[in-house]
Design a binder for these strands. Sequence first.
DNA 1: TTCATATGTGAATAGCTAATCAGATATCTA
DNA 2: TAGATATCTGATTAGCTATTCACATATGAA
Lengths: 125, 125
Amino acid sequence: MARGVVGLDVCAVKVVDEMRVEAAKEALLPEDELEQLTRLFRLLGDATRARLLYALLEAGELCVCDLSAATGTPETNISHALRLLRTAGIVKVRRAGRMMFYSLHDAHVRMLLDVSREHLRHEAR
Amino acid sequence: MARGVVGLDVCAVKVVDEMRVEAAKEALLPEDELEQLTRLFRLLGDATRARLLYALLEAGELCVCDLSAATGTPETNISHALRLLRTAGIVKVRRAGRMMFYSLHDAHVRMLLDVSREHLRHEAR
DNA sequence: TTCATATGTGAATAGCTAATCAGATATCTA
DNA sequence: TAGATATCTGATTAGCTATTCACATATGAA
């Protein structure tokens, strides 16, 4: 995953469509943005975490125990998963006594989850 | 990653918010849909593939060599990456002589990429 | 304070997968 | 046909990461 310096066997000489290559180069995402973006997608790319997120999308706010009941996932797994999602700013927490209530952090994530699900369902695979 | 049967140490007895848990359970994505969805996200969660997709989002259609030039990635890597994206139906191919021109497969993916990028940029992290 | 409960944490393991390299295939040109 | 070019493929390896288990922390109740 460590990219750093560009590979060596890259075809640097001949380019078929100079215009388009330039356009693509101009629009290249900066490395840090790309990193953030792929990190987000990677987090959504795990079944356990995805279950949690869609559960929260529906229920609004749930404690760890209820997330466990709703998704059929061991609480330890949920705790680990939620930490990653929390750190990434995808979910937020509210403490109530000894329970922690989780919910989606913002509208963007919600839209992303929605769009994705719709994408899936409208695909006639 | 193999889930199959539900874990054993799941809190199955006490539920804090019965209503919400039920709501979340009702809305649970079927396993096969979840699998498709996470597979999609996982594919978007790699920097090499993401570069290709955003390049195609901008340039419209590019051959492997131009993708290499535009993203600074060795052609072999690109070939491997494109195979996965092709298999998943995310990109499509057109042959022209000995060159293969790739482009995004449909509007859904395009929207997903757009929404994601916007999500990122509007976040004041 | 002591016990029970809800959640969090750290280390270890097993499985997945991106990058690499050597070589295969397909198409064009001479 | 032979040779060159563009792309693809398979096997290997190294790195990442989800899961699991044992235990730690934190809060509330008695």
